[in-house]
């Protein structure tokens, strides 16, 4: 009995915590008149749905596409560059490994808003700002790579070394044992890390805002920030935009929730 009471309280707390998400969807369903109402109505009285207008009126297809390009680019680059390093760091031991891990951690903690200045100037000199989405991909990869390595390292460390050695004796080269034994057995951690990198990059703001000037190449966050101007009052539109933008993210999250929690805890602890 007490356990069900706890469940009820738990649902109450979780609901209260996630209220901002509810509020986003609720506002997206209210018309302008209902939005300015005070006190606000908790449940939309005349649900009304305005996806098309916001979606096309605000050029969301282009924004979302650009966000997707950035997110896919970053994720691909991070997987290619980081998986092997995570594997080695999860396997080898010694002073060099500690030093490398320390370096990776230091790169992870750097705030994007601080490193964007030198990256911008450097990319400008290198002529990379002519392909601004690539510039954002390169910058965001540097940000996401350490995170990915740290999370994946934990799952590689969880693959028994014996298995790879058995594979070597069975006839694999080390490279092949990495691909055919270590990677498949660590795939849960790799998947979680890759998904998190993808989501982070899909919602990236600082680099896109600072490096992309052509509106046609802007990402969804920058499109939203233009919408969020200082004197904005179109909350219906903003929340519709937000809802369209984050719903796919939330769906991915719900589908993979248990793996994400498991992967994060493993990565964070070790």
């Amino acid at each position: 009995m007490k356990r069900y009471l706890l469940t009820a309280i738990g649902i109450g707390i979780t609901g209260a915590y996630l209220f901002p998400l509810y509020w986003m969807y609720a506002t997206a369903l209210k018309d302008d008149a209902e939005i300015v109402q005070y006190p606000p109505t908790l449940v939309p009285q005349r649900p009304f749905w305005n996806v098309g207008e916001v979606f096309f009126g605000r050029h969301m297809p282009s924004y979302l596409w650009n966000s997707l390009v950035v997110a896919v680019g970053v994720t691909a680059l991070v997987i290619v560059l980081g998986t092997g390093c995570a594997y080695v760091l999860g396997r080898a031991r010694g002073r060099w490994v500690d030093a490398l891990l320390f370096f990776v951690l230091m790169m992870q903690v750097l705030p994007s808003s601080l490193v964007v200045t030198p990256l911008f100037v450097g990319f400008n000199l290198a002529g990379l700002l002519g392909t601004p989405r690539l510039a954002v991909i390169l910058a965001q990869t540097a940000k996401a790579l350490p995170f990915y390595v740290v999370i994946c390292r934990a799952s590689f460390a969880g693959v028994p070394r014996d298995l790879e050695e058995a594979a070597l004796v069975d006839g694999h080269s080390r490279l092949a044992a990495f691909f055919h034994i270590a990677v498949p057995l660590a795939r849960n951690g790799i998947l979680v890390a890759a998904v998190l990198v993808f989501l982070q990059s899909f919602g990236e703001y600082v680099f896109a805002r600072s490096m992309i000037s052509d509106d046609g190449l802007q990402t969804a966050t920058v499109g939203l920030s233009a919408f969020l101007g200082p004197n904005t009052s179109d909350w219906h539109g903003i929340m519709t935009y937000s809802a369209i933008y984050v719903t796919p993210i939330l769906i991915i999250f719900v589908l993979l929730q248990r793996r994400i929690v498991a992967g994060l805890t493993a990565g964070a602890i070790k």
Binding site: P20, E204, T221, L224, V246, F253
Partner: peptide, 11 residues
């Protein structure tokens, strides 16, 4: 609860 954590900060 982690749903909040993966949301884009700007949103």
């Amino acid at each position: 609860f982690l749903a909040a954590w993966i949301m884009p900060g700007l949103v």
